[in-house]
């Protein structure tokens, strides 16, 4: 091996500095979760915990509805992921492999719909869900109750379809050879059987990419969840519950607990991400940069 070029050394030094700037904030959060109340109240605050309070990670489950939040996060995120996988694969397949009147229009819709920012839709969707007739205590005219707002449906349904997901699945379905599909048709297979037994297995890498992407995105979603669950504490997800209960941590001696709860909210996504990183990266670059 030849000795490293001085420029290369400089490059690695700069990259290490950058990596430290990315990792240190997380380490600071974690260290703080291990401090004792006395260490938190000391002036100046003790930075390096002398007697690491690992119990803090268990205590947040005793003292906060962490288990409910965690269950809600898992349920809502899984439901959205599953729904988006199904709807994206179906629509993506139709847009890739069928040429019938209406598919061009739908493709344009899929591309155009991605341009509408969420802040434009959040107000009308909130009130449309509230005024769903006959549900959540509403009468026939959608008055009197809270409609779908107090239910999981309010957290899941507005994200049942992803335009980006449909587009991504279409790209993957385009790679499925027509011959395979036609051969199955000649063998007398129905269209849904072809979709289930031939197309889905062939686009499995695409489904993995979309699945992990959707999971990470919706685990971290807060704006819509804050809006819908401000008054429905039983429906709050991990990040949202921690945020809305911030008043409980006003006393500085409880800072470590808040930090512990936040660490727990970050951990599941980190694990999923580290395990499935290659699928995730592919989803982000697919179809974005076409030189």
């Amino acid at each position: 091996m030849r000795p490293p070029h001085p420029l290369a050394l400089l490059r690695y030094a700069a990259l290490t500095l950058g990596a430290l700037a990315m990792a240190l904030p997380f380490a600071d959060m974690f260290l703080g979760a291990l401090r004792t109340p006395q260490e938190l109240l000391a002036v100046p605050q003790v930075y390096w915990p002398r007697d690491p309070q690992w119990r803090n990670f268990a205590r947040v489950f005793d003292e906060l509805p962490m288990a409910t939040w965690l269950a809600n996060s898992v349920f809502v995120t899984s439901a959205i992921t599953l729904l988006q996988l199904i709807t994206s694969a179906m629509a993506g397949y139709a847009l890739a492999k069928f040429r019938v009147p209406g598919t061009t229009l739908m493709l344009r819709l899929v591309l155009g719909a991605q341009m509408f920012p969420f802040f434009l839709l959040i107000i009308p969707i909130f009130f449309l869900l509230r005024f769903v007739p006959l549900l959540g205590g509403n009468d026939l005219w959608g008055q009197g109750g809270s409609g779908l707002l107090g239910s999981y449906a309010a957290l899941v349904l507005p994200f049942a379809v992803s335009w980006y997901g449909i587009f991504l699945m279409r790209q993957f379905c385009l790679g499925v050879p027509d011959e395979v599909i036609d051969a199955a048709r000649l063998d007398g297979a129905g269209e849904f059987r072809i979709f289930l037994t031939i197309v889905l297995p062939l686009i499995r890498p695409g489904l993995a990419t979309l699945g992990i992407f959707v999971f990470v995105y919706h685990w971290n979603e807060v704006i819509w969840t804050i809006t819908v669950t401000r008054g429905a504490s039983g429906l709050q997800t991990l990040p949202v519950g921690i945020y809305l209960l911030r008043g409980a941590f006003a006393d500085q001696s409880t800072e470590a607990l808040q930090r512990a709860a936040i660490c727990i909210s970050v951990l599941p996504v980190m694990l999923v991400f580290l395990g499935l990183q290659r699928f995730y990266v592919r989803g982000l670059t697919a179809g974005s940069v076409k030189g």
Binding site: I86, T87, M90, A91, Y93, A94, L95, F98, V100, G102, T103, M106, L109, V110, A113, F116, L120, L121, P124, I125, F127, L128, L157, P158, A160, V161, I166, E191, F192, F195
Partner: peptide, 23 residues
């Protein structure tokens, strides 16, 4: 078949995009 495959997305576009935007 293609219309059935597209039905969920089309319904969603109506209920959660076009409808809310008009509203």
């Amino acid at each position: 078949a293609p219309y059935l495959f597209l039905a969920p997305a089309a319904l969603f576009a109506l209920v959660f995009l076009v409808g809310p935007l008009g509203f």
